[in-house]
Amino acid sequence: MDNRLAPIKLDSYQPLREVVCESLREAIRTGILKPGERIMEIQLAEELGVSRTPVREAIRKLELEGYVVMMPRRGTYVANMSIRDINEIFEIRTALESLSNGLAADHITDEELEHLQRLLVMIGGYIKEGNMEKIVETDIEFHDTMYHAARNNRLVGIISNLRDQLTRFRTLSMSYPGRLEATLEEHRLIVEAIAQGDRKAASKAAERHMENSEKTLLQAMDAMKKKNESKAKSKKKKAEA
């Protein structure tokens, strides 16, 4: 494995294992550590400039989050995400998002509702600017605000874990033609239902949003696969010429 990870800055207020975990999580999300790639504790520790202990602790946490898989006598690998895995995650997340939004319709405060509405305006502005980084950042804040409005900490933790397992695909999905505008409209419908205190409508809006998100992600993955296959064929032709 090439030296691709930046050394950890030791001036963080967080425990070292958490800093290492976030660094590895981000490397997986951004594709620096690729699906199916073997995770070597010693090499990662050297790249990050830390001992093996925080790396080992971080890997265990990432396994619980679904980012890596530990295989007896074979080692640890960056998790591959199959279509079945995605289907299962969305199946569970759809049910939990529906519950969360329904609870938010019952418990949201005026301040939280106002914050959601401001975030929608911000996302709309970032879409016009084409600022994907800010879109993703604000989208995460939007969902976090709704989760906390449900007033169920255990539910927040479970949904966040499921969401994290798909974070590496977020930009791919949002970059799919028309998805950003559709997502913004779906969010508006969710906020409208929550604002009216309509638990049933909020739950249904969440379900539609998740169904559309899954559909778009699978379409984007298929398009990416075809694009990569086309590039590989083109490269092979040039090599044979």
Rank of each mutant, 00 (worst) to 15 (best):
R170W: 10
Q196P: 05
L166T: 04
I8M: 03
D85Y: 00
I92Q: 07
S173Y: 01
A201K: 15
S82R: 00
N161E: 09
Q43Y: 10
L189C: 10
D144R: 13
A201V: 12
R73N: 11
K9M: 09
L62F: 06
V136C: 07
T76P: 00
K9G: 05
Q165F: 02
E192R: 15
H143A: 06
L5H: 08
T109W: 15
E192W: 12
S203F: 13
Q219C: 11
S98E: 13
R38W: 08
F90E: 00
E112W: 02
M221L: 15
L10C: 12
A206D: 02
D139I: 01
K134M: 15
A223S: 11
E47P: 08
G178T: 13
E65P: 04
K238R: 15
A95I: 02
D144M: 11
E22D: 09
H143N: 05
A195Y: 04
S100W: 06
V50I: 11
E63N: 06
I127H: 09
K134W: 12
A223V: 09
H143R: 10
A223C: 07
Q14K: 15
G36S: 02
E211W: 05
R168Q: 03
R73K: 12
I32C: 04
T167Y: 01
G130S: 06
E97P: 06
L184K: 11
R56A: 03
L184I: 13
A195R: 12
Y67Q: 02
E129K: 15
T53G: 07
Q14L: 15
M70V: 11
E229P: 01
I86L: 01
N101V: 01
V69S: 05
K215M: 02
I89P: 00
D11W: 03
K236N: 06
L16T: 13
T53K: 14
S234T: 06
M221V: 04
A95H: 04
S100D: 04
E137A: 02
N80S: 02
L10I: 15
A223K: 07
H187E: 04
Y176C: 02
E91R: 02
L218V: 02
E214M: 13
P72V: 04
T76M: 05
L120M: 10
K233R: 15
E207N: 04
M71N: 03
T30N: 11
E141T: 10
L166S: 05
K225A: 11
T53W: 09
E185A: 14
R38H: 10
P72E: 05
V20I: 09
E181G: 05
